[in-house]
Design a protein around this nucleic acid. Sequence first.
DNA 1: GACCAGGTGTCCG
DNA 2: CGGACACCTGGT
Length: 279
Amino acid sequence: MKYVETKSGVHLYELDNFSMEHIINSGQCFRWSRIATNTYAGVAKGHYLEILQSPNEATALFKCSLKEFENLWYDYFDFSRDYQSIVKLVTDSDSFLTSAVRFGSGLRILKQDPWECLVTFIISQQNNIPRITGIIERLCNTFGELKEKNGIKYRCFPTPQQIIDKYHLLGTVGLGYRDKYILAAAIKVSDELYDLEDLRRVDSVTCTNRLKEFYGVGDKVANCISLFGLGHTDAFPIDVWIRRIIDEYYNGEFDMTKYSPYSGIIQQYMFYYGRMIKQ
DNA sequence: GACCAGGTGTCCG
DNA sequence: CGGACACCTGGT
């Protein structure tokens, strides 16, 4: 991938493995959407961004400054990683994964904010995607800071303190029984001595175990946070979809260590493809 | 109205 | 330790 600053934003070209369409439909993030043909918008880490992607997905326009692109989006979209080399780990003998990586070409693992991931995937439990998206939107509208960029108003994802300050409104966003998990997480993370960022520097098993200390966070959610929020590409979340795939195509056993330390990335292709063909 | 959805805590053997 | 069961809420 190469990029150059233009008057309308940062122009990306010679793009390899970048598909906003796949990324926003892969269930890893809930604050991006397609706002027009080939046009996407979202909020992450306090910034609003619009992306125009060419139909062949070889180029894209990021409507932001070069500084913002280099300081935030380059890392967020994981552009330093060579996905092609990871995809090559899949051999012809695995026909499911061969189809999955072909189908999901352009998927990437976004490097999201760990606190947002923690909340997002607590909400995701025993829930469906449209409702998850709605809850997060209401959560942001109720608690998040209002900002504006080029006349477009948007809400940031709320900080732990912003949730605590108006915790009596938690019942209004439709969290259901998960509201107590969110409040407990906010209280824990707002502690000066607690820093989720510390979990980047431990191995993925330790990271996942530490995350499971949060009330309402079990193995699946902890692995999602490790993978999507803390850079542990070998975290391998097993949800009902992955379970079904393993049962149906792998006779109940899948050796993810074969793809270490990228098994989490392989998992994303499995999940995306498996869910699509079942729909 | 019963049942389910990208799980988890709790209880019970 | 493994298996049942309840759990908010909004949708079939």
